Amino acid sequence: MQLIDVNKARYRKHLNRVIWGCIAGLAIGSLGISQILIALFPDESGRHFHWNLLGVLVTSVTIGYVLSQYRSHEFMREVTYVWELKQALNKINRKLVKLKQAASQGNVDAMLALQYSYAGSRLLWKLDDNTIVMEELAVEQAKLDGLMAQYQVALNIEDYNEQVLKSF
Rank of each mutant, 00 (worst) to 15 (best):
R71H: 08
Q2K: 13
Y151D: 03
S167Y: 03
A113R: 02
R122T: 02
A119I: 02
S167R: 12
D159G: 02
A113F: 06
T80M: 11
R94Q: 13
V56F: 14
I63H: 04
C22A: 09
Q69N: 11
M111S: 05
A103L: 06
G106K: 06
Q2M: 11
S60A: 15
G29I: 03
F75N: 06
S60M: 14
G25A: 07
N107Y: 09
A113E: 02
A27E: 01
Q101Y: 07
Q163P: 01
L37V: 09
K86Q: 13
H50Q: 11
A110S: 15
V139N: 00
F168H: 06
R17Q: 10
W83S: 15
F75A: 04
D159E: 11
Q105M: 13
Y160A: 11
K13P: 01
Y70T: 11
V108S: 09
K13V: 05
W51Q: 15
G64D: 08
K91L: 13
V133I: 04
Y65Q: 05
K100Q: 15
Y81M: 11
I157A: 07
E162Q: 12
L124V: 06
Q150G: 05
S60H: 12
F168G: 04
Q163T: 14
Q141W: 00
D129Q: 06
I63N: 04
Q101W: 04
M76T: 06
Q35V: 03
Q152S: 15
S167C: 05
G64F: 06
K8V: 08
F49Y: 15
K91H: 14
A142T: 03
H50G: 08
S72D: 14
V108C: 04
K95S: 07
L144A: 01
D109R: 12
F75I: 02
S68E: 13
Q115C: 03
D159F: 02
I19A: 08
G146T: 02
D109E: 12
K126Q: 14
K91M: 10
R71P: 00
L3Y: 06
V108D: 10
A39G: 06
S68F: 11
R94I: 03
T80V: 08
I38E: 09
I63P: 01
V82F: 05
